[in-house]
Design a protein around this nucleic acid. Sequence first.
DNA 1: ACTTGGCACTCGGGAACACAGAGTGCCAAG
DNA 2: CTTGGCACTCTGTGTTCCCGAGTGCCAAGT
Lengths: 337, 337
Amino acid sequence: MVDDRKLAVLRAIVEDYVSTNEPVGSKALADRHNLGVSPATIRNDMAMLEEQGYIAQPHTSAGRVPTDKGYRLFVDRLSQVKPLSSAERKAIESFLAGAVDIDDVVMRTVRLLAQLTRQVAVVQYPTLTHSTVRHVELVPLSERRLMFVLITNTGRVEQRVIEVPDVVDEQRVAHLRAMLNASLDGCGLTSVPDRVADLPERLPAEDRPLAATILSVLLESLVDRHDEKIVFAGAANLAGADFTVGLRDVLEALEEQVVLMRLLGETSDLSALTVRIGSENPYTGLQGTSIVAAGYGSGDKQLARLGVLGPTRMDYPVTMGAVRAVARYVSQILAAS
Amino acid sequence: MVDDRKLAVLRAIVEDYVSTNEPVGSKALADRHNLGVSPATIRNDMAMLEEQGYIAQPHTSAGRVPTDKGYRLFVDRLSQVKPLSSAERKAIESFLAGAVDIDDVVMRTVRLLAQLTRQVAVVQYPTLTHSTVRHVELVPLSERRLMFVLITNTGRVEQRVIEVPDVVDEQRVAHLRAMLNASLDGCGLTSVPDRVADLPERLPAEDRPLAATILSVLLESLVDRHDEKIVFAGAANLAGADFTVGLRDVLEALEEQVVLMRLLGETSDLSALTVRIGSENPYTGLQGTSIVAAGYGSGDKQLARLGVLGPTRMDYPVTMGAVRAVARYVSQILAAS
DNA sequence: ACTTGGCACTCGGGAACACAGAGTGCCAAG
DNA sequence: CTTGGCACTCTGTGTTCCCGAGTGCCAAGT
């Protein structure tokens, strides 16, 4: 019973603090929530909560503020993801429906998420690792130049210009293209190296230099993009919020692909809805911010992750609801294409 | 003589204000620059400059600050673009040299420019309007689905998934692809509609529905991207600066493609190095910011524009130098590919 | 054993105030 | 036209003071 009430107090503190952005005191709590006890009792509970590290006071004789640990408890045990209103669902659906290609999907998603949560949205491009080859194309551009295009089943297109050793022979290129497609069609990107390993051997000697050049570019393009592309939107939403750490650090972190990547989480379970609160996240420049992320992707294979970044003091139930919903819709869209 | 000195005073004010970020007074001017006259004289000049609207005082008994009009005069007549140090040139060159494709070029450019100027860099993707068709590809994805890929001479790739009315027939697709390439190869994007207008007529009746579908997608993809893609980087550099207008407005503007587009300038002369100072720019959310932009592109055809956005109080000679230099290098890189 | 009202205490934030210093405009002399 | 002198006007800063919110603790009540 007693413990139960302390948790109720913690929940009330988090909720009030999130909505007012001011340290919350015992009297205010007693007034706004009907906890059925007096301020004095609440004070006792708060003292214990503070002792256990769930809340803290900015200075003596100020109200209490949740600590990272407090938010963690709140997220884990005291709140439940808030589903979106049907109007919001409608909006998501129609906003995403018009996307024409994978870039467009990602772009729309990130903007949608930013607008929905009024925070910074981050979306990772679908990972190549889990996708398969749809088509390989070789396009002669000029005498000694080829364009190499790789199309995956997720609609992603990788392109490279290749400088070739000899003057391009249309015949040979066509042949090579046919062979490549035969070898690679439907093959997972991770197994591409295996599949093409013996390809030069199967060619007449005079074609091998060309093939080798092309293959090296092909392989390189796979490795190269292993550090995936990430985009963000909604930086303007940071302007209002005040972080414990400078706004500058946050913006800097956002422009670092590597940092973003790690923020979205190296979770073992890609599909999980994960929350990183303040100091839990691996990057020192981002104390005072939390990340809510979820995996998305078609079918049972998770392709990548998306999420939002905002001040630690955020409305977790709502944010989590939005992130989860968007992840689901994007998955749907991708599955359909 | 007299007028000459007033200009020198204005220049000194701009330079001092830019470097100190504090209103500059007559005494400070006399000390720091050897104008050879006394503070009192300078005061007289300043009074006249103020009367003519080139400078203003934030409040009585504070130093003077340049107005937008003052900066304009400074840029037009009192300064000259400062060339980059050779170290900087080296850095630019090596930073841009490693780019693998057009996306990479743009990405590197925008980051480079942001870092170089310590401001927000903005780069427009090379315009399709001036580019020509290199290759059109049609790739069957599934029974009723085609992927359409358009490759331009700037290395840009447009892609669309097409839902087709009938089951795809490899033969027909191949034929159509051949015809498309024959009609369009090397043709400017603007003239694409003309070139394909009569294409359905030249086909057997049973192919026309398919052709029509593909053509409509083709044409749409041209129109669709006419509002070009623009990227920015270096938002973190805004964090330090204080604008007359809220930081939020600036960040919001940066995320609006349309706004960015207009900021880069609808100049008749794409290649010019243009400067928009404070209130001169068309967007009310961006009072207090200036834009320095230049065109870039290979050969004599300007492809697009790039630039930086920063507080009105910026070091124009240096910024202009950096923008011009980067524009030139990017042009070089693009010309070479 | 827990809850509650009372009470003294602490501390941050805002209002009132004074003051130094930078900078100005103007004037009369050079 | 320039210059030094001088009175004046501000802003920004530092100081002081005080109110009020909020706390911790204690003793009394259930």
